[in-house]
Design a protein around this nucleic acid. Structure first.
Lengths: 126, 126
DNA sequence: CCGAATCCCAATGGATACTG
DNA sequence: CAGTATCCATTGGGATTCGG
């Protein structure tokens, strides 16, 4: 996060905030799932499509091309017929797995706390 | 992330995926900013409004109430006139700062890599 | 088999005006 | 000061169809 003074003159969120950039890339509906799957092994397009329940072909294509563009995922098209395209993590993509797993660990550790808080809140008010 | 077999029968993304839940809560446009600001110190509503450049009153209210509902943020209304409402992190919210900072560290460390990859990609194709 | 193109709907979020 | 309510533009993303 960009440095923010205690009574500083307002963060500019659009400007120059690294976390913002990461979340814009990885905070969407499918990117994390894909990165984690590719963290296990290389997958073909169709494998990913089958592995991720509920994703449309359009969103899989779109999300993959963004991840490739950002250098997190590597695309390898084999000039065969029928075509075969493999996706895997780049070195950069693999480094992202680390903080992603930290976030995951937090999620696993605290999901019950969140659910409890939510239940308490909803019971109190509505 | 829920366990995913190498050739397993498809992850159900909606079902029961902890990271999904976290990103659904914190992957929006403003939550992370607010959590980080409150990680520095307690803020009043208006302080947050001024501190976060570009946020609307509506989204600040909305995001705060979600964070309160999930037990990440604590709301304290003082019965004074004019009213004064303080927001701070709960213990749970403070634990979230840790993985958030890990993600931030990654973002800071690799934003140039991403930009370079993007530039390379855009130069090559369009 | 991979993926681009089009269409369409629902959700997100900004602007503004109003209330206790 | 701290919200709530209404309206509207933009975006995300699913379904489907077509192309290489």
């Amino acid at each position: 996060m960009r440095e923010v003074g205690a009574r500083g003159p307002a963060i500019s969120v659009d400007d120059d905030c690294p976390v913002r950039e990461v979340l814009d890339r990885v905070g969407d509906k499918w990117s994390v799932l894909i990165v984690v799957l590719l963290g296990q092994r290389t997958h073909r397009f169709g494998e990913l499509h089958r592995a991720i329940d509920g994703i449309s072909q359009r969103m899989l294509t779109l999300t993959l091309s963004r991840l490739v563009r950002d250098g997190l995922v590597c695309r390898t098209a084999h000039p065969t017929v029928p075509p075969r395209v493999d996706y895997s993590l780049t070195d950069l993509g693999r480094t992202l797995l680390v903080p992603l797993r930290a976030l995951d660990a937090w999620a696993v550790a605290h999901r019950d706390d969140i659910r409890a808080a939510r239940a308490r809140h909803d019971a109190a008010a509505g």
